Amino acid sequence: MNPRKNKPVIGISIGDINGIGPEVTLKALMDNRILRLVTPLIYAHGKAITFYRKHLGLEDFNFMQIKNIQEVHHKKVNLINVVEESPEVMPGAETQEAGKLALAALNHAIKDLKDGSIEALVTAPLNKHNINSETVKFVGHTEYLTEALGVKDSLMFLVSEDIRVGLVTGHLPLSEVSKQVTADRIKSKLEIMLQSLKNDFGVGKPKIAVLGLNPHAGEEGLLGTEENNIIKPVIKEYKDKGQLVFGPYPADGFFGMLQHKKFDGILAMYHDQGLIPFKSMAFETGVNFTAGLPVVRTSPDHGTAYNIAGKNQADEGSMREAVLAAYDIIRHRGGWDESGES
Protein backbone atom coordinates (compact mmCIF):
# COMPACT_ATOMS: atom_id res chain seq x y z
CA MET A 1 0.00 0.00 0.00
CA ASN A 2 1.20 3.50 -0.85
CA PRO A 3 1.02 5.45 2.45
CA ARG A 4 0.21 8.66 0.53
CA LYS A 5 -3.18 7.41 -0.49
CA ASN A 6 -6.20 6.79 1.70
CA LYS A 7 -8.68 7.54 -1.09
CA PRO A 8 -8.24 7.24 -4.85
CA VAL A 9 -7.01 10.46 -6.43
CA ILE A 10 -9.14 11.38 -9.42
CA GLY A 11 -7.80 14.04 -11.73
CA ILE A 12 -10.08 16.50 -13.54
CA SER A 13 -8.69 18.30 -16.59
CA ILE A 14 -10.60 21.56 -16.72
CA GLY A 15 -11.15 21.74 -20.48
CA ASP A 16 -12.08 25.12 -21.96
CA ILE A 17 -12.24 27.69 -19.16
CA ASN A 18 -14.64 29.79 -21.24
CA GLY A 19 -17.15 26.94 -21.53
CA ILE A 20 -19.26 25.26 -18.86
CA GLY A 21 -16.50 22.90 -17.73
CA PRO A 22 -15.46 24.97 -14.68
CA GLU A 23 -19.08 25.52 -13.65
CA VAL A 24 -20.10 21.87 -13.77
CA THR A 25 -16.85 20.86 -12.08
CA LEU A 26 -17.33 23.20 -9.13
CA LYS A 27 -20.99 22.29 -8.73
CA ALA A 28 -20.29 18.54 -8.95
CA LEU A 29 -17.49 18.71 -6.38
CA MET A 30 -19.78 20.48 -3.92
CA ASP A 31 -21.66 17.17 -3.61
CA ASN A 32 -20.47 15.75 -0.27
CA ARG A 33 -20.49 12.20 -1.65
CA ILE A 34 -17.59 13.03 -3.96
CA LEU A 35 -15.15 14.10 -1.26
CA ARG A 36 -16.09 11.15 0.93
CA LEU A 37 -15.20 8.67 -1.81
CA VAL A 38 -12.33 10.28 -3.74
CA THR A 39 -9.67 12.96 -3.59
CA PRO A 40 -10.27 15.40 -6.49
CA LEU A 41 -7.31 17.03 -8.21
CA ILE A 42 -8.17 19.76 -10.73
CA TYR A 43 -5.70 20.52 -13.52
CA ALA A 44 -6.35 24.17 -14.36
CA HIS A 45 -5.32 27.58 -13.04
CA GLY A 46 -6.41 28.96 -9.69
CA LYS A 47 -7.47 32.27 -11.21
CA ALA A 48 -10.04 30.61 -13.47
CA ILE A 49 -11.55 28.59 -10.64
CA THR A 50 -11.62 31.61 -8.33
CA PHE A 51 -13.34 33.62 -11.06
CA TYR A 52 -16.20 31.12 -11.39
CA ARG A 53 -16.45 30.65 -7.63
CA LYS A 54 -17.19 34.36 -7.26
CA HIS A 55 -19.05 34.86 -10.54
CA LEU A 56 -21.49 32.02 -9.86
CA GLY A 57 -21.86 32.75 -6.15
CA LEU A 58 -20.46 29.37 -5.13
CA GLU A 59 -18.86 30.72 -1.96
CA ASP A 60 -19.10 27.34 -0.22
CA PHE A 61 -16.70 25.81 -2.74
CA ASN A 62 -13.13 25.68 -1.42
CA PHE A 63 -9.96 24.34 -2.93
CA MET A 64 -6.26 24.14 -2.11
CA GLN A 65 -3.56 24.97 -4.62
CA ILE A 66 -0.63 22.57 -4.62
CA LYS A 67 2.64 22.57 -6.53
CA ASN A 68 2.86 18.85 -7.22
CA ILE A 69 1.10 15.55 -6.68
CA GLN A 70 3.04 14.80 -3.49
CA GLU A 71 1.26 17.69 -1.74
CA VAL A 72 -2.24 16.27 -2.32
CA HIS A 73 -4.54 16.76 0.66
CA HIS A 74 -7.14 13.99 0.96
CA LYS A 75 -9.76 16.05 2.78
CA LYS A 76 -9.83 18.87 0.25
CA VAL A 77 -10.30 19.63 -3.42
CA ASN A 78 -6.80 20.12 -4.82
CA LEU A 79 -5.65 22.20 -7.80
CA ILE A 80 -2.43 22.30 -9.81
CA ASN A 81 -1.66 25.29 -12.04
CA VAL A 82 -0.79 23.94 -15.49
CA VAL A 83 0.30 27.27 -16.98
CA GLU A 84 2.36 29.98 -15.33
CA GLU A 85 0.54 33.10 -16.52
CA SER A 86 -2.90 33.90 -15.16
CA PRO A 87 -5.43 33.33 -17.95
CA GLU A 88 -8.09 35.82 -18.96
CA VAL A 89 -11.51 34.25 -18.35
CA MET A 90 -14.14 35.23 -20.94
CA PRO A 91 -17.27 33.05 -20.56
CA GLY A 92 -18.71 32.12 -23.94
CA ALA A 93 -15.70 33.25 -25.99
CA GLU A 94 -13.46 31.02 -28.06
CA THR A 95 -9.86 32.06 -27.41
CA GLN A 96 -6.47 30.60 -28.22
CA GLU A 97 -5.42 31.13 -24.61
CA ALA A 98 -8.22 28.88 -23.39
CA GLY A 99 -7.23 26.22 -25.91
CA LYS A 100 -3.62 26.35 -24.75
CA LEU A 101 -4.67 25.92 -21.11
CA ALA A 102 -7.05 23.05 -21.95
CA LEU A 103 -4.29 21.14 -23.74
CA ALA A 104 -1.78 21.84 -20.95
CA ALA A 105 -4.26 20.53 -18.37
CA LEU A 106 -4.88 17.37 -20.36
CA ASN A 107 -1.18 16.68 -20.97
CA HIS A 108 -0.31 17.22 -17.30
CA ALA A 109 -3.08 14.83 -16.27
CA ILE A 110 -1.97 12.19 -18.79
CA LYS A 111 1.57 12.38 -17.39
CA ASP A 112 0.27 11.76 -13.87
CA LEU A 113 -1.92 8.92 -15.14
CA LYS A 114 1.02 7.24 -16.80
CA ASP A 115 3.18 7.27 -13.69
CA GLY A 116 0.36 6.12 -11.42
CA SER A 117 0.08 9.36 -9.45
CA ILE A 118 -3.68 9.50 -10.04
CA GLU A 119 -6.07 6.57 -10.26
CA ALA A 120 -8.41 8.01 -12.91
CA LEU A 121 -9.01 11.02 -15.13
CA VAL A 122 -12.24 12.90 -15.73
CA THR A 123 -12.05 15.28 -18.68
CA ALA A 124 -14.20 18.39 -18.75
CA PRO A 125 -15.36 19.51 -22.22
CA LEU A 126 -13.02 21.41 -24.50
CA ASN A 127 -13.17 22.99 -27.93
CA LYS A 128 -11.28 21.07 -30.62
CA HIS A 129 -11.01 24.16 -32.82
CA ASN A 130 -8.92 26.31 -30.46
CA ILE A 131 -6.63 23.40 -29.61
CA ASN A 132 -5.75 22.33 -33.13
CA SER A 133 -2.71 23.90 -34.73
CA GLU A 134 0.06 23.05 -37.17
CA THR A 135 1.79 21.03 -34.43
CA VAL A 136 -1.25 19.57 -32.66
CA LYS A 137 -3.92 17.47 -34.36
CA PHE A 138 -6.75 16.93 -31.90
CA VAL A 139 -9.76 14.95 -33.12
CA GLY A 140 -11.15 14.14 -29.68
CA HIS A 141 -10.26 13.04 -26.16
CA THR A 142 -10.75 9.36 -27.02
CA GLU A 143 -8.32 9.37 -29.93
CA TYR A 144 -5.80 11.61 -28.18
CA LEU A 145 -5.65 9.44 -25.06
CA THR A 146 -5.48 6.24 -27.08
CA GLU A 147 -2.43 7.51 -28.95
CA ALA A 148 -0.79 9.09 -25.89
CA LEU A 149 -1.06 5.85 -23.93
CA GLY A 150 0.25 3.74 -26.81
CA VAL A 151 -2.88 1.59 -27.07
CA LYS A 152 -3.73 -0.09 -30.37
CA ASP A 153 -7.47 0.46 -30.06
CA SER A 154 -10.09 1.77 -27.65
CA LEU A 155 -13.86 2.13 -27.53
CA MET A 156 -15.95 5.24 -27.06
CA PHE A 157 -18.46 3.81 -24.61
CA LEU A 158 -21.42 5.96 -23.54
CA VAL A 159 -22.85 4.61 -20.31
CA SER A 160 -25.68 5.33 -17.92
CA GLU A 161 -27.83 3.35 -15.53
CA ASP A 162 -30.24 2.26 -18.28
CA ILE A 163 -28.19 2.08 -21.48
CA ARG A 164 -24.60 1.50 -22.67
CA VAL A 165 -23.65 2.32 -26.26
CA GLY A 166 -20.26 1.76 -27.93
CA LEU A 167 -19.17 3.00 -31.35
CA VAL A 168 -17.43 1.15 -34.18
CA THR A 169 -16.44 4.49 -35.76
CA GLY A 170 -16.14 7.72 -33.81
CA HIS A 171 -15.21 11.20 -34.96
CA LEU A 172 -15.37 10.61 -38.70
CA PRO A 173 -17.20 12.40 -41.54
CA LEU A 174 -20.28 10.40 -42.53
CA SER A 175 -18.83 9.96 -46.02
CA GLU A 176 -15.96 7.93 -44.51
CA VAL A 177 -17.98 5.67 -42.21
CA SER A 178 -18.81 2.80 -44.59
CA LYS A 179 -15.13 2.46 -45.53
CA GLN A 180 -14.22 2.03 -41.86
CA VAL A 181 -16.91 -0.54 -41.04
CA THR A 182 -14.73 -3.60 -41.52
CA ALA A 183 -14.85 -7.05 -39.98
CA ASP A 184 -11.57 -6.48 -38.13
CA ARG A 185 -12.75 -3.16 -36.72
CA ILE A 186 -16.07 -4.59 -35.53
CA LYS A 187 -14.26 -7.53 -33.89
CA SER A 188 -11.85 -5.20 -32.12
CA LYS A 189 -14.66 -3.05 -30.72
CA LEU A 190 -16.68 -6.12 -29.71
CA GLU A 191 -13.71 -7.56 -27.83
CA ILE A 192 -13.16 -4.31 -25.95
CA MET A 193 -16.87 -4.04 -25.10
CA LEU A 194 -17.07 -7.64 -23.88
CA GLN A 195 -14.02 -7.25 -21.66
CA SER A 196 -15.14 -3.85 -20.38
CA LEU A 197 -18.60 -5.09 -19.43
CA LYS A 198 -16.96 -7.89 -17.46
CA ASN A 199 -14.06 -6.03 -15.87
CA ASP A 200 -15.37 -2.48 -15.56
CA PHE A 201 -19.09 -3.06 -14.93
CA GLY A 202 -19.19 -6.49 -13.31
CA VAL A 203 -21.39 -8.16 -15.96
CA GLY A 204 -20.62 -11.90 -15.83
CA LYS A 205 -22.00 -12.94 -19.24
CA PRO A 206 -22.55 -9.81 -21.34
CA LYS A 207 -25.39 -9.71 -23.84
CA ILE A 208 -24.64 -7.39 -26.75
CA ALA A 209 -26.79 -6.02 -29.57
CA VAL A 210 -25.08 -5.02 -32.82
CA LEU A 211 -26.82 -2.41 -34.97
CA GLY A 212 -26.85 -2.42 -38.76
CA LEU A 213 -25.20 0.30 -40.83
CA ASN A 214 -27.92 0.92 -43.41
CA PRO A 215 -31.64 1.71 -43.10
CA HIS A 216 -33.60 -1.41 -42.11
CA ALA A 217 -30.22 -3.15 -41.56
CA GLY A 218 -29.77 -3.33 -45.31
CA GLU A 219 -33.12 -4.98 -46.13
CA GLU A 220 -31.31 -8.21 -47.12
CA GLY A 221 -29.04 -6.38 -49.55
CA LEU A 222 -31.66 -4.09 -51.08
CA LEU A 223 -30.41 -1.03 -49.15
CA GLY A 224 -26.78 -1.96 -48.71
CA THR A 225 -24.50 -4.99 -48.51
CA GLU A 226 -22.46 -4.31 -45.38
CA GLU A 227 -24.83 -6.25 -43.15
CA ASN A 228 -24.71 -9.46 -45.22
CA ASN A 229 -21.05 -9.26 -46.19
CA ILE A 230 -19.43 -7.87 -43.03
CA ILE A 231 -21.60 -7.55 -39.94
CA LYS A 232 -23.54 -10.83 -39.98
CA PRO A 233 -20.44 -13.04 -40.42
CA VAL A 234 -18.81 -11.35 -37.40
CA ILE A 235 -21.92 -11.91 -35.28
CA LYS A 236 -22.03 -15.57 -36.34
CA GLU A 237 -18.36 -15.98 -35.43
CA TYR A 238 -19.00 -14.69 -31.92
CA LYS A 239 -22.13 -16.78 -31.49
CA ASP A 240 -20.15 -19.86 -32.54
CA LYS A 241 -17.71 -19.05 -29.74
CA GLY A 242 -20.56 -19.02 -27.24
CA GLN A 243 -20.84 -15.24 -26.89
CA LEU A 244 -24.25 -13.59 -26.50
CA VAL A 245 -23.94 -11.29 -29.52
CA PHE A 246 -27.07 -10.60 -31.58
CA GLY A 247 -28.11 -8.58 -34.62
CA PRO A 248 -27.76 -6.71 -36.82
CA TYR A 249 -30.76 -4.66 -35.73
CA PRO A 250 -32.27 -1.71 -37.62
CA ALA A 251 -31.41 1.21 -35.35
CA ASP A 252 -34.74 3.03 -35.57
CA GLY A 253 -36.90 0.06 -34.68
CA PHE A 254 -34.42 -1.17 -32.06
CA PHE A 255 -34.63 2.00 -30.00
CA GLY A 256 -38.24 2.74 -30.92
CA MET A 257 -39.32 -0.59 -29.43
CA LEU A 258 -37.06 -0.09 -26.38
CA GLN A 259 -35.09 -3.23 -27.15
CA HIS A 260 -32.00 -1.66 -25.56
CA LYS A 261 -33.44 -2.65 -22.19
CA LYS A 262 -32.77 -6.32 -23.01
CA PHE A 263 -29.02 -5.87 -23.52
CA ASP A 264 -25.96 -5.04 -21.44
CA GLY A 265 -24.30 -3.21 -24.32
CA ILE A 266 -25.13 -1.92 -27.80
CA LEU A 267 -22.58 -1.59 -30.58
CA ALA A 268 -23.50 1.20 -33.00
CA MET A 269 -21.76 1.63 -36.35
CA TYR A 270 -21.25 5.40 -36.24
CA HIS A 271 -21.33 8.43 -33.98
CA ASP A 272 -24.83 9.85 -34.37
CA GLN A 273 -26.48 6.43 -34.69
CA GLY A 274 -25.43 5.70 -31.11
CA LEU A 275 -25.25 9.11 -29.50
CA ILE A 276 -28.61 10.53 -30.57
CA PRO A 277 -30.66 7.86 -28.77
CA PHE A 278 -28.22 7.78 -25.85
CA LYS A 279 -28.37 11.52 -25.24
CA SER A 280 -32.13 11.53 -25.73
CA MET A 281 -32.41 9.10 -22.82
CA ALA A 282 -29.53 10.11 -20.56
CA PHE A 283 -28.27 13.60 -21.39
CA GLU A 284 -28.05 14.83 -17.78
CA THR A 285 -26.69 11.59 -16.32
CA GLY A 286 -24.76 9.98 -19.18
CA VAL A 287 -21.01 9.41 -19.05
CA ASN A 288 -18.48 9.05 -21.86
CA PHE A 289 -16.06 6.26 -20.87
CA THR A 290 -12.99 5.27 -22.89
CA ALA A 291 -12.93 1.48 -22.67
CA GLY A 292 -9.84 -0.50 -23.56
CA LEU A 293 -7.28 1.79 -21.92
CA PRO A 294 -4.96 0.61 -19.14
CA VAL A 295 -6.20 3.61 -17.12
CA VAL A 296 -9.68 4.89 -16.27
CA ARG A 297 -10.98 7.91 -18.18
CA THR A 298 -14.51 9.29 -18.09
CA SER A 299 -16.14 12.57 -19.04
CA PRO A 300 -19.56 14.21 -19.08
CA ASP A 301 -21.46 13.53 -22.29
CA HIS A 302 -21.82 17.18 -23.33
CA GLY A 303 -19.70 19.92 -24.87
CA THR A 304 -18.53 23.41 -23.91
CA ALA A 305 -22.00 24.99 -24.33
CA TYR A 306 -20.60 28.51 -24.84
CA ASN A 307 -24.14 29.86 -25.12
CA ILE A 308 -24.81 29.30 -21.41
CA ALA A 309 -21.26 29.59 -20.04
CA GLY A 310 -21.04 31.78 -16.96
CA LYS A 311 -24.82 32.08 -16.63
CA ASN A 312 -25.25 29.56 -13.80
CA GLN A 313 -27.54 27.45 -16.00
CA ALA A 314 -25.36 24.39 -16.62
CA ASP A 315 -26.49 21.10 -15.09
CA GLU A 316 -23.67 19.32 -13.26
CA GLY A 317 -25.38 15.91 -13.28
CA SER A 318 -23.27 14.37 -16.03
CA MET A 319 -20.00 15.62 -14.51
CA ARG A 320 -20.95 14.26 -11.10
CA GLU A 321 -21.83 10.91 -12.65
CA ALA A 322 -18.51 10.91 -14.54
CA VAL A 323 -16.59 11.20 -11.26
CA LEU A 324 -18.71 8.54 -9.56
CA ALA A 325 -18.41 6.23 -12.60
CA ALA A 326 -14.63 6.58 -12.52
CA TYR A 327 -14.66 5.56 -8.86
CA ASP A 328 -16.90 2.55 -9.55
CA ILE A 329 -14.74 1.38 -12.46
CA ILE A 330 -11.59 1.63 -10.33
CA ARG A 331 -13.25 -0.66 -7.78
CA HIS A 332 -14.52 -3.11 -10.40
CA ARG A 333 -11.01 -3.41 -11.81
CA GLY A 334 -9.77 -4.31 -8.37
CA GLY A 335 -7.62 -1.23 -8.10
CA TRP A 336 -9.18 -0.04 -4.85
CA ASP A 337 -11.09 -1.63 -2.01
CA GLU A 338 -13.40 -0.14 0.58
CA SER A 339 -10.56 0.10 3.12
CA GLY A 340 -8.84 2.59 0.84
CA GLU A 341 -5.97 0.35 -0.15
CA SER A 342 -4.67 0.38 -3.71
Rank of each mutant, 00 (worst) to 15 (best):
H108E: 09
E227P: 10
S339V: 08
D264T: 05
P233F: 01
A325G: 03
G221C: 00
F246G: 00
K27D: 05
E191C: 00
P300L: 00
E147K: 14
K114F: 01
L324N: 06
G15S: 06
L222Q: 02
G99R: 08
A325T: 14
I163H: 03
L222M: 06
K7R: 10
G140H: 06
E227D: 04
I308M: 08
I118G: 01
F61C: 07
P87R: 11
V168G: 04
E338I: 12
A322I: 13
D200R: 06
T39R: 11
G99A: 04
S178R: 13
T123K: 15
P206T: 10
D162Y: 11
E284G: 00
S188G: 03
G11I: 00
D200E: 15
F263W: 05
G334M: 14
V136N: 03
Y270N: 06
F51C: 08
Q96W: 06
K239D: 03
E237P: 02
V122G: 13
G11W: 09
K205R: 14
P91E: 05
W336H: 04
L56Q: 09
G116F: 14
G116Q: 15
N132V: 01
Q195V: 03
H108D: 10
E97W: 09
L79V: 14
K137E: 09
Q243K: 13
L244D: 11
E227C: 01
G204D: 12
T285S: 11
R320L: 15
P248F: 02
D272H: 10
L26M: 14
Y249E: 01
Y238Q: 06
K261M: 09
H260R: 01
K261C: 08
Q259E: 07
E119T: 07
E219C: 03
A93G: 00
G303V: 02
I80T: 05
I266W: 08
G340C: 07
V159P: 01
G57C: 09
K189N: 01
L106N: 07
L172P: 11
N199G: 12
G334A: 08
N2K: 10
V82N: 12
Q65V: 14
F289G: 00
S318T: 06
N6M: 01
K67P: 01
Y43W: 02
G253S: 10
E321H: 12
E219Q: 07
L149H: 13
A322T: 11
P87V: 03
G92A: 14
L258Q: 11
L174M: 15
N214T: 00
P22H: 00
G265V: 07
D184L: 08
I118Q: 01
N214M: 04
I235N: 09
N62V: 05
D184M: 08
L158W: 03
K137Y: 12
D264I: 09
S13G: 01
P206C: 11
K152Q: 13
P8L: 02
M257H: 09
F283K: 03
Q65C: 10
